[in-house]
């Protein structure tokens, strides 16, 4: 039953991924700037530019280029970088683990901080603690990560000098980028946990649990939290998408050579195969995470039928 469900969901991801390649390919065509001109360098002759175009197949009709690309991707060939002629896939395989590591620590931070804050708020709603936590959460949602990241860098690295400014060498290097990237998500998770908990706490089965003489702690963790988690899981899953987008900014701020920064550099260079490969892999990761969340969701919520 569960296996069938996973297989069906996997099949559904194929059109999504193909759609992503389509959108990225044509959007890149709309971006001003010709890769051939950029490659040829300043002051190159028209003949040189034309030669580069022909060499790269850029003079063929767009749809031919697109289907050609798509067929190659299905064969596992992501093409070569226009910049340095290296296979795109090799570059991605170097960059992806770094970004995944960053995303992993960020999401852990999002979950732990967000849920803890949400539970603390929900236990005593409308109290001073609750208001304080929720105001901080509001700040977390509102502050843009490029500003927040720089402020953290200034405070922890420049002023206090307890954490490295940038780079990606040790576990210490992970802390600031992961905090920056996870802050918004943590705030959203905190608010979601709080409202979901408050909803559940009002239910009669919580009253029943109290009437049975269960300890308050057990009521909160065993009865309330487990039921309140269901919508929170969905939000965490969606946050992962936002997180992947956020890596683009955070990796640039903290000079981390991850997938996000690779895509930014490639866009700047009009390195079409590189951009497409990067975005394709990022969306694949997103789709897989969503699938995982769906499975988890059904595991947590016994009421959802597997069809």
């Amino acid at each position: 039953m569960m296996m069938m469900f996973i297989i069906r969901r996997l099949m559904q991801t194929i059109p999504v991924v193909v759609g992503v390649t389509f959108v990225v390919f044509f959007i890149m065509q709309l971006v001003p700037g010709d890769p051939a001109v950029l490659l040829a360098g300043e002051g190159a002759s028209k003949e040189t530019i034309q030669a580069i175009r022909e060499q790269l197949g850029l003079n063929r009709p767009l749809f031919v280029q697109y289907f050609d690309y798509l067929m190659n991707v299905f064969r596992g060939d992501f093409g070569v970088s226009l910049k340095n002629s290296q296979p795109v896939l090799d570059e991605i395989l170097v960059r992806l683990p770094i970004t995944m590591e960053l995303a992993f620590f960020s999401i852990i931070f999002t979950i732990i901080l967000g849920m803890t804050a949400g539970i603390i708020s929900a236990i005593k709603p409308y109290s001073l603690t609750d208001s304080t936590v929720m105001i901080i959460a509001l700040l977390g949602i509102s502050l843009p990560s490029f500003w927040f990241g720089l402020m953290m860098m200034y405070f922890f690295s420049v002023k206090l000098q307890i954490l490295p400014v940038a780079g990606w060498d040790s576990i210490l290097h992970i802390i600031l980028p992961a905090l920056t990237l996870g802050a918004g998500g943590a705030a959203i998770v905190a608010r979601m946990t709080r409202s979901s908990m408050l909803e559940v706490i009002r239910q009669d089965y919580i009253r029943t649990a109290r009437a049975k003489g269960l300890r308050e702690r057990v009521i909160i963790y065993k009865h309330a939290l487990r039921n309140a988690l269901i919508p929170v899981i969905t939000v965490v899953g969606l946050q992962f998408g936002a997180l992947l987008g956020g890596t683009v900014l955070v990796e640039s701020i903290f000079a981390i050579n991850g997938l996000g920064r690779m895509i930014v550099d490639a866009i700047r260079m009009r390195d079409l195969p590189m951009v497409q490969g990067g975005v394709l892999v990022a969306s694949l990761v997103f789709v897989i995470v969503n699938l995982f969340v769906d499975v988890l969701y059904r595991f947590f919520n016994k009421r959802i039928e597997l069809n």
Binding site: D204, Y205, R207, T208, A211, K212, F300, K302, R303
Partner: peptide, 15 residues
Amino acid sequence: LQVIFQDPFASLNPR
């Protein structure tokens, strides 16, 4: 002292 609530959908923990 025990209690039985109105809504049998809400008074049992669904999990």
